[in-house]
Nucleic acid binder design. Structure first.
Lengths: 114, 114
DNA sequence: CGATATACCTTGACAGGCGAGGTATATTGG
DNA sequence: CCAATATACCTCGCCTGTCAAGGTATATCG
C-alpha cells in the first residue's frame, strides 16, 4: 500500500460510511470500491474492515442483513441509517477541520519564499 | 479542543518537526506555538508531547540540550538534525498523499449535483 | 483435485494518545 | 505570607484502533 495507514487511522469508519451513503454494500465489495476509487493505492485490512463494521453497527450507524445469494459465498449487506448519515456529516466536518489544522501546522518549515 | 485528536494521530511527530524546522525550541514553547498557530483550536496533551519528543530523539531526528536559564523552570531545548529534516520532508509527503486519498474517498456521498 | 477468488469472522499483540499523578521554580493577588 | 497560577519537565497505566495470523465456507478454473 502506498499510503501510511497510521495517517488514515480514525477515518476508517467515515470512509465506510461514505461508501454506504451511495448504496447498500457488503464488506468485501466496499473494500474493493475503496481500492478502485484510489486506483489501487489503498484498501482496508480485513480485520480493520470488519471491526469497523462491528463498531458502526453497535453504535446504530448501520444495520445489516444477509443477502439472498443462492450461489457463491454468503454476503452480509450493510445499510446506513439516519443516525449514520448524520454521523457521516459530522465526521466529515471533523475531518475537514483536522485537515485544515494539520495543513496549517505543516505549511511552514520549508519552501516558503517571502 | 475543537479538533478530534484521533484525526491528528500519526501527525504529532511531523507537527513537532515542523516547529523545529523554524528554530530550536523547548516542549512547552513548541506546544504554545502550536496553540497560537491554530488560534487556540489545538494543542498537544503534555503526555503526548513529551513521549513524541522521546521517540524523535530515540530515532535521531532531534537532539536535546538543557538551556542555561538562571531563573525560572529549566528548559530542555530540542534541535532538528539532518535526519530529522529529511524525515520531515518524507512525513509531509506521506501526509499529502493520505490527505488526498481521504479527501477523494469522502468527496462523494453527499452534495454532489448533476 | 489443488489453487485461486470470493466472503465472512476472531484473537492477541502492538503503538500512539492521554488522564492522572508527580517534581520544581517564579510570580501575583488577597 | 501563603495560596493560587503559570511555567516547565517527566512517567505510569489504560484505552482504542490497526492488523498479522489464523480460521470457516463456497465456487471456478486448469
Amino acid at each position: 500500500m502506498s499510503v501510511a495507514s497510521e495517517l488514515i487511522r480514525g477515518n476508517t469508519e467515515t470512509i465506510i460510511l461514505a461508501q454506504l451513503m451511495k448504496h447498500d454494500g457488503y464488506g468485501y465489495m466496499v473494500n474493493k470500491a475503496i481500492l478502485n476509487m484510489t486506483e489501487g493505492r489503498f484498501e482496508l485490512k480485513e480485520a480493520t474492515l470488519y471491526t469497523a463494521f462491528r463498531r458502526l453497527e453497535d453504535s446504530g450507524c448501520i444495520v445489516s442483513y444477509w443477502g439472498d445469494e443462492t450461489t457463491g459465498a454468503r454476503r452480509k449487506y450493510y445499510s446506513i441509517t439516519d443516525l449514520g448519515r448524520e454521523s457521516y456529516r459530522l465526521r466529515k466536518k471533523d475531518w475537514k477541520t483536522a485537515e485544515a489544522i494539520i495543513d496549517k501546522l505543516l505549511s511552514e518549515g520549508e519552501g516558503e519564499s517571502i
